[in-house]
Amino acid sequence: MKQDYFSANNIKHIDYKDVDILKKFLNPNGKIMNHKRTGVTSKNQRSLALAVKNARFLGLLPFVAK
């Protein structure tokens, strides 16, 4: 099993402005990856999803990638 990215890199707060990190967890269509694919803990997966959604609202990430 892949290790949790956020605990491995000692990231305690997932920020919506860290687009480079968030992009790692999007598929080519811009959808949030399944937690089975990301290997992120449930708690971090929830905050990751929230961060992606906040970033989408502010136009930092796409809702749908072409």
Binding site: N9, H13, D18
Partner: peptide, 22 residues
Amino acid sequence: LRFLILKTIRENTIAAKRFVHK
């Protein structure tokens, strides 16, 4: 154009520096 008010923490939350370290 848009704005978003969020509850957050006092510490710096941007992890970009860690990437530089990496």
